[in-house]
Design a protein around this nucleic acid. Structure first.
Lengths: 212, 212
DNA sequence: TTTGCGTTTAACAAAATTGTTAAACAAAAT
DNA sequence: ATTTTGTTTAACAATTTTGTTAAACGCAAA
């Protein structure tokens, strides 16, 4: 349709993101993506040259966005516990959109370790570094048991991300509908906070300022 | 070599398990498996008819074994906290062998949900049911904060399994060698226990009796 | 030693998937 | 109206992967 910008390109990318990161179809073919987007398969090669290059772009974009949100929260001026509460909130919320994102990244790393090494290293600006000082002060003040920043962040990431990665398993075992699963994840925000701090999670204000 | 039992069949299965569940190569082809095992590709079809059927068998066998170990521990007569300590120990140890097992299961569920539904449901005899009573007593006695058995088990599974699923990511970010990663996982056993119970993990006796 | 049976292989056929190309098309600019 | 530009498509070629088959092989029992 002539000069209609990168509209179609975005349509393809968004469709592919849904198949890969939301529905967990790691092996979705270019044909399946094209069908889902309602375009011809050759278009994908026109815009992205190859399936692999498209995948790189999708991963790059999506992970950068997620990491951006997280980093914005962890490097904010909030007090420690409130910061962690916002982290939990943001990671779980984002996971509702793309539950299989990390799952996908993991598979790709096994397939082409070299390519993703630097990408991953550059990207994952160790989040543990962003909370180390505050965490250590918290421990010094005897407000929580001693733990390294690395293990603390991994505990936190684990409890937030695992139910996302394992979405299909959890839904099957407990016979949850999509909306039940959604509610289950919302409950978990509280649970995770309480498991770590042994107290109720505070109300979250400033949510919007921290999103972008 | 004549009457040499199902020796070769086992060789192929073990090789495939290593590629799929240990190295995380979800897309390993029948050719790659055959090469790695040092046999001709057609052998795989001779023994398993198709790649998909072999995959089913591998998943079935491996998950059953892992679940067997876990269930044996959770349905033992041990006191609650010791039981959980053994659970952590067993899951992390098994994960050192096949870190990508769950990752693989998750991907397969997205690909063929129906086939794995009953398999998964029958298999995952909700572990939360096996600890509910003891957990509730623990809470009644005010020895820990209130939490449902489901969320408790998911917290636990998350902290044990996530570092396994995310093996490649963690190793890359923190520049860990295989042996460093191994040590890191061993440390985590303590960390996980302490995060949940706010006390040091007890010594584990009876390890052998609980393994089989 | 030869017959039989499980095991192993190479060669072939079929299917699925990716990547390329040249032509058709539609809208905007000239 | 025609040219131009970017977009879209169908048809084709190449590659990869899977699945089949018939024959060869080696050991053990007859």
């Amino acid at each position: 349709m002539g000069a209609e910008e990168a509209q179609t390109e975005k349509l393809i990318k968004d469709t592919a993101k849904v198949l890969f990161f939301q529905k967990g179809l790691l092996k979705a073919t270019t044909q399946e993506i094209a069908d889902e987007a309602g375009v011809n398969r050759a278009l994908i090669h026109y815009y992205f040259r190859s399936r692999d290059q498209m995948l790189d772009i999708l991963l790059e974009e999506t992970i950068q966005e997620k990491k951006g949100r997280v980093k914005r929260i962890l490097s904010s001026e909030l007090p420690f516990r409130l910061k962690i509460a916002h982290f939990i909130d943001a990671v779980v919320d984002y996971g509702l959109t793309y539950p299989y994102l990390e799952n996908f990244l993991i598979s790709e790393m096994a397939r082409q370790p070299d390519k993703l090494k630097d990408f991953c290293a550059r990207d994952r600006v160790k989040s543990s570094d962003l909370i180390r000082e505050q965490l250590e002060e918290e421990i010094r003040k005897k407000r929580m048991a001693p733990i390294t920043a690395e293990h603390f962040m991994i505990n936190l990431s684990a409890m937030c991300n695992y139910p996302l990665l394992a979405k299909s398993i959890l839904q099957t075992i407990h016979g949850m509908t999509d909306s039940a699963y959604r509610k289950f994840l919302m409950d978990r925000k509280q649970i995770i906070y309480t498991t770590i701090f042994n107290e109720d999670m505070p109300e979250l204000t400033h949510k919007k300022e921290l999103q972008y």
